[in-house]
Design a protein around this nucleic acid. Sequence first.
DNA 1: AAATATACATAGATAAACGATGTATATTAA
DNA 2: TTAATATACATCGTTTATCTATGTATATTT
Lengths: 116, 116
Amino acid sequence: MYSKELLKGTLSTIILNLLKVNGEMYGYEITQSVKLKSAGKIEIREGSLYPALHKMLADGLIKAREEQAGRRIRVYYSLTESGINSLETRKEELFGFLETLIQILNPSYPILPDAR
Amino acid sequence: MYSKELLKGTLSTIILNLLKVNGEMYGYEITQSVKLKSAGKIEIREGSLYPALHKMLADGLIKAREEQAGRRIRVYYSLTESGINSLETRKEELFGFLETLIQILNPSYPILPDAR
DNA sequence: AAATATACATAGATAAACGATGTATATTAA
DNA sequence: TTAATATACATCGTTTATCTATGTATATTT
């Protein structure tokens, strides 16, 4: 597991990107997806995930739909128009930052291509 | 300027790396160096820098040497043995995280080489 | 002479992610 | 069958990194 500090500032971007790729996901599914895709090296805690989802919902970046799964309720989230735009902006900023960071830390590293 | 949240978790690593590359630097010099190398896109605030330096000093990662510059005092910092090791560990963790992050955000991106 | 740059410092604010805790249903293992 | 674990949601308070604001003082440029 990586230091939790590294995740700061990128968690919402990760969530938005997953929603874009998969169209619709529920909370628990997001945590499992990140865990799987990162080979266990990034784990989004529920104490981080749900507040983040609620904030993005309040900010109009995502929308929610409740679905009955057996006797339990699942809340499916998907991107709004605003969320799609926000994701693009965030990814551009993030990749720009990473490019700069890598340049400072190790100038011999190859530069990342544009976020597209 | 990038979101300050993105810098969280990487600031100390940036400082340690600069000290390794340049051998010895004073605080103000570090802020200017980062500003220059990042083309103004990353600016370390003095309210972030000095507490970070003081913490790393207390943690034994860096050592300090005061030098009189005219009538003013400059505090030059350099890495300790512990700091050299810490930097290597941090860089490995950081580049590992970045690799995972990029993979999650955009699997088509090229993978970064090992941090060496 | 005034404005800006250099050079240090610290106290309090902000905000993101987390740990702990709680509730409840579903599934797997003992 | 029952105990343990996994699924699925939620919230409160804690932690901690960075920043804003503020302060002091010297040096340089306008």
